[in-house]
C-alpha cells in the first residue's frame, strides 16, 4: 500500500511537470504588447530565410518593423542562400535573403512549382583583401596578381613570387569556406569560374576565424566581407585593388559609387509576389526598401544609390517578376554600377 502511495505521489510530480508546460503557455500570453504607433492594426506573419550575409540587414529591418507593427510576427532564419531558395521555391517562405543571384536550376524549380519571384537588391557588400598590420610592403594588388595567387594552378609560394622585391617568405592564405556565397563571388570574379580556387588555404565559414588568423600572421593574405574589415580596422590592413583604372581602397564611398570594382557585389532579397497579397508582407517589403539604405550601413554594408531602391519599389508596385542580374535576365538591370 505504501509503495502504491509512493507511486501516486510520483505520478503527481509528473503531472506537475506537465503543468509547468502549461504554465509557460499561460505566462507567455500575458506578455503580449499593447498596440502602439502607425500600422499597429496590421497582424500576420512574414517569413524570411536564407543567407547569413544578408541576415544582419534583415534582422535590423525586422527589429525596426516590430516597433511600428508589433502585431506582425517577422521571423528570419539562416539556412544559407541555397538552403533558403529551396524553401522559397517550395513556397514555404515569403522572402529569401540572397548573397548571390538566383541560379538557373532554382528558377526552373520555382517555375515547376508555380512560384514567381521579385528580385530586389538591398545593399552592396565590398569583398575586402586584408593583410597583417606589420605588412609594410603591399601597397596594392591588381586583378592579374590576385589571379596569379588564387587560381587553381597557382605556382605562387612566397610573396616574392607575386611581385619582385617583396619578401621571400611563404604567403599564408585565408579565405571563406566553399559553401559561402562570398567564395563563389570571389572565385568567379578573380578566377573566372565559380568555385575555381587553389585549395591550400586556411578556409573557415566563420569570418572571425579568418580575422584572427590574419591578425596573428605577418605573411598572411585573406579576403572576406567589408563589415568584418570595418569592425577590425585596428587589427588589419586593407589592400587597395586595381581593377584596371588604378588602385582603389574599399570605403563606404567607393563601394557606393561603384569605383571599387570588381569586388563589390549587390546582395538581394527575393520576394514571392503571391505573398504580397498579404498586407503584412506588403507593408514589410515596403518598409524594407525604405529603411535598407540607412540600416545596411549601420550593420556594416554599403547603401545602394537611392534610385535603385526607388525602382525596387516600382517593381513591387507593378509586381515585376524575373531576374535582372541572373541567367536569362528578363528585366533590364537597375543600375549601371556593375554593368
Amino acid at each position: 500500500m505504501r509503495s502504491v502511495l509512493n507511486w501516486s505521489s510520483k505520478m503527481n510530480k509528473y503531472l506537475a511537470a506537465l503543468l509547468c508546460v502549461f504554465a509557460l503557455y499561460g505566462c507567455s500570453e500575458s506578455v503580449e504588447q499593447p498596440p502602439v504607433g502607425e500600422g499597429s492594426e496590421l497582424s500576420g506573419k512574414v517569413r524570411l530565410d536564407g543567407s547569413s550575409t544578408v541576415f544582419p540587414i534583415s534582422e535590423a529591418v525586422a527589429e525596426e518593423f516590430n516597433a511600428v507593427a508589433p502585431r506582425v510576427r517577422v521571423t528570419v532564419g539562416v539556412s544559407g542562400t541555397g538552403g533558403g531558395f529551396k524553401k522559397f521555391v517550395a513556397g514555404e517562405i515569403d522572402i529569401n535573403d540572397a548573397s548571390r543571384i538566383i541560379k538557373g536550376s532554382e528558377q526552373e524549380k520555382a517555375a515547376a512549382n508555380g512560384v514567381e519571384f521579385i528580385e530586389l537588391p538591398v545593399a552592396f557588400d565590398g569583398l575586402s583583401l586584408v593583410v597583417n598590420l606589420q605588412n609594410d610592403w603591399v601597397d596594392q594588388l591588381s586583378i592579374a596578381e590576385l589571379n596569379a595567387i588564387w587560381n587553381p594552378d597557382s605556382t605562387v609560394k612566397t610573396w616574392a613570387d607575386v611581385r619582385q622585391g617583396w619578401p621571400d617568405e611563404e604567403i599564408k592564405l585565408y579565405g571563406p569556406g566553399t559553401d559561402s556565397g562570398t567564395f563563389d563571388y570571389f572565385t568567379k570574379v578573380i578566377n573566372g569560374k565559380e568555385q575555381a580556387s587553389r585549395a591550400d588555404f586556411t578556409a573557415s565559414e566563420d569570418d572571425n576565424v579568418l580575422v584572427q588568423g590574419i591578425a596573428g600572421d605577418k605573411y598572411s593574405l585573406g579576403y572576406f566581407g567589408f563589415a568584418y574589415y570595418i569592425e577590425n580596422q585596428d587589427k588589419l590592413k586593407v589592400v587597395p585593388v586595381d581593377g584596371g583604372d588604378g588602385a582603389v581602397k574599399p570605403t563606404l564611398a567607393t563601394i557606393n559609387d561603384g569605383s571599387y570594382k570588381p569586388l563589390s557585389r549587390p546582395i538581394f532579397i527575393y520576394v514571392n509576389p503571391a505573398s504580397l497579397d498579404d498586407p503584412a508582407v506588403a507593408a514589410f517589403v515596403d518598409f524594407y526598401l525604405e529603411q535598407a539604405a540607412a540600416l545596411s550601413e549601420e550593420v556594416g554594408y554599403v547603401a545602394l544609390p537611392a534610385d535603385v531602391y526607388q525602382s525596387g519599389r516600382q517593381r513591387v508596385a507593378e509586381r515585376t517578376t524575373g531576374t535582372a542580374y541572373g541567367e536569362g535576365a528578363s528585366v533590364s538591370p537597375l543600375t549601371g554600377n556593375d554593368g
Binding site: E29, D49, E63, T75, D207, I230
Partner: peptide
Amino acid sequence: LTYVAFVPEGPMDEFTALPIQIFNWTSRP
C-alpha cells in the same frame, strides 16, 4: 529560426533556441 522577436504561445508557434542564438552571435563581426 534565428531572429524571433516573440515568445511561443502554443506548440504550433515558430521558435528559436539558446544554442542557435549563441551560434549567431559568435559569427558576428
